[in-house]
Design a protein around this nucleic acid. Sequence first.
DNA 1: AATGAATGAGCATTCATTCAT
DNA 2: TATGAATGAATGCTCATTCAT
Lengths: 217, 217, 217, 217
Amino acid sequence: MKSNFFKESFQKISEEKRQRILDAAIIEFSEHGFDSANINNIARKANISVGSLYKYFDNKEDLFLTVVHVGVETLKSVLAKIMESRDTLETRIEKIIRAIQVHTRSNVHLTKLYNEMATESRSNLVWKIVSDMENATAGLYTSFVKEAQKAGYVRSDIDANLFAFYLDNLFIMLQFSYACEYYKERMKIFVGDDVFNNDELVASQLMKFIRGAFLVN
Amino acid sequence: MKSNFFKESFQKISEEKRQRILDAAIIEFSEHGFDSANINNIARKANISVGSLYKYFDNKEDLFLTVVHVGVETLKSVLAKIMESRDTLETRIEKIIRAIQVHTRSNVHLTKLYNEMATESRSNLVWKIVSDMENATAGLYTSFVKEAQKAGYVRSDIDANLFAFYLDNLFIMLQFSYACEYYKERMKIFVGDDVFNNDELVASQLMKFIRGAFLVN
Amino acid sequence: MKSNFFKESFQKISEEKRQRILDAAIIEFSEHGFDSANINNIARKANISVGSLYKYFDNKEDLFLTVVHVGVETLKSVLAKIMESRDTLETRIEKIIRAIQVHTRSNVHLTKLYNEMATESRSNLVWKIVSDMENATAGLYTSFVKEAQKAGYVRSDIDANLFAFYLDNLFIMLQFSYACEYYKERMKIFVGDDVFNNDELVASQLMKFIRGAFLVN
Amino acid sequence: MKSNFFKESFQKISEEKRQRILDAAIIEFSEHGFDSANINNIARKANISVGSLYKYFDNKEDLFLTVVHVGVETLKSVLAKIMESRDTLETRIEKIIRAIQVHTRSNVHLTKLYNEMATESRSNLVWKIVSDMENATAGLYTSFVKEAQKAGYVRSDIDANLFAFYLDNLFIMLQFSYACEYYKERMKIFVGDDVFNNDELVASQLMKFIRGAFLVN
DNA sequence: AATGAATGAGCATTCATTCAT
DNA sequence: TATGAATGAATGCTCATTCAT
């Protein structure tokens, strides 16, 4: 599968300009969705001409795909960093939760984009790009659960695949709840207007929830 | 707050035609989102003229709000039916899970619409319509958790609000996983291509996950 | 030339209903002009159905032409009443001026319609309807001027046709100045915000203007 | 008050293109009025794309206001040129009459636009634009009449404001009679089909009319 | 005869994409 | 290579006219 959706010329420009374009695009796409995103706006915000944009990308879709691709790579690297250490499952989960709280806040648009992307029945191209991230995540979580089962830390009477899935579901919703307006409001309704000043409570309770679900008692 | 966004004439037409319009609209909005939804398409699919559509609704936004409103009412009634019986928390949760599996499959577009809607804070009107559903859900779940805590069935060392929130998060993701293309693919990656023929496993494992999280051990 | 633009059925309805229709139509046309006038509005204001309107008139244009025709007849009869008495030119002119002040105020829409009508290059049909009124007016004024010339009251060194024309020009602008928003504002600029409470001054000065122009000194 | 209703880009295009757009617009607006004027027509006639038109003007109203503004400026400058010389009132009036005959013929659409515009108080914006022209005219005429009164050339027993007003009324109707179909036909009825080949007579008789009205006898 | 719901062509406006400079 | 003006297809919405009841 093609994994680059930009033209050669996009690689030749300065790192700084490239970043400006990606930033402008990720904001526009994450805030308006693919169809309503405005290419001319992106160019203006990136401080380049539309003409140039079309020198770097064949069309709107390719720009979108590039942005998604970059976003996915970013998310993968965040996860990878957490997972490379040799911690216990419990520690890892805790690290992930904290990372979500920190990372989501400083990369709101990335999460919004993920939400947006999961929405559009945007060709199957998007899926092609994202699936390897989901594959990585799924594989990682599942194998850690299985390992922990073998080691006796985690109940042996559960389906590792499904439990990894439910675990990731909780993580995704946590991300949305920190980034997307709708889910932020919803979280406030459930927990109170003050939640967003109470990361510690949110994290520790989620840990308790997950630990109960997984651990041998 | 105004809760009807349609004109009087919309009430006068036959139930069948009204349903045709709502169906066409919910499909269009759920598949394209508000901005990219095409009013002319909706009219064509509903087998009426644009002119008529505008006799029933003042504008695109009002049609959208009506559709959201109807969708929310449907979801509320499904939940209400489950909750009115005097079951234990555990039974109730199990019933909800089964209901999600059944109801989502036959109302795919409703769930897609919810996902779409959560995507960008479409004016605050949408939020006004949906917030009472979220409020109802949040209140219901939280109070049941608290009751169960009092009765000694559920751990007393947890924050009922947050646990209710995490619980609903699992439910929402389950819905998306049965309705939205993206999340369906993701679920297949986690659990295997066969998941959608294995409702029993999905439900029982989720029950196990939740039971572990909640119950006194 | 056809001089009726309505269908037979329009004559069969009650005088009261007919008037309601004409009133609604004259208001709509005079306020919005032909193109922007709204047939459905007219029907609603006249308290009849669009369907009926189309039973009485073949189309929008015919309704417009009927309205113009009625308006013209009204104006003609007002003028006729003034002219039938055996007054001197000077008295007649004074009577016309006073009549304009009174009649225009209570028939604002008629004058607006005249202005509107003079604007549209509405087919030559309009012209056909109106020309006989203009012919009548022109003939009347001109012959009175000529008579007065013969009688020695009016300067003999003038072109009666043109003087009658200039005279009517003054009358038309007076009408507009009492009926049409734009010209009302303009008159206020020229004479002061108080003009419309000062009919006496306006009339007497206009008399003085015209007398000077016409009379032998 | 804002006095430019176009975007910056409109100033950047070639004088020739700018004129083409203004010409097309003035014709369309003067022939159909604001509501019925067709933007796509204007673009086509101006030989540019609709897209471009919207690069130069935010919307239909702004294009209209620009056209009105330009028209008013043109009329003001014509009047100003006549008035700057140090002639007697009588000479000035004669110059204005001749100027109307010449200028109206070569700027038919400007006069039609004025008529159209006076027809329905298009927002109060139009009035804002035009009122300063009316103010200028009113002030000019009135002060000249007053001066002439002081100098003993004009009767002292008249209201200068009203006489200036009646004078301008005659001028306006003369303009309409040279530009607008309806008023042209009317003038032919009053004076004969040949009027438009007889500027000399029209002017000299109008002078006679006005002189009689104003002068000390 | 009367009704008014239904129709669909028409217009203002937007925006992805092109191309002359 | 970079620019941004120009293009025109597409879409929300209106309203004269029709026609089943």
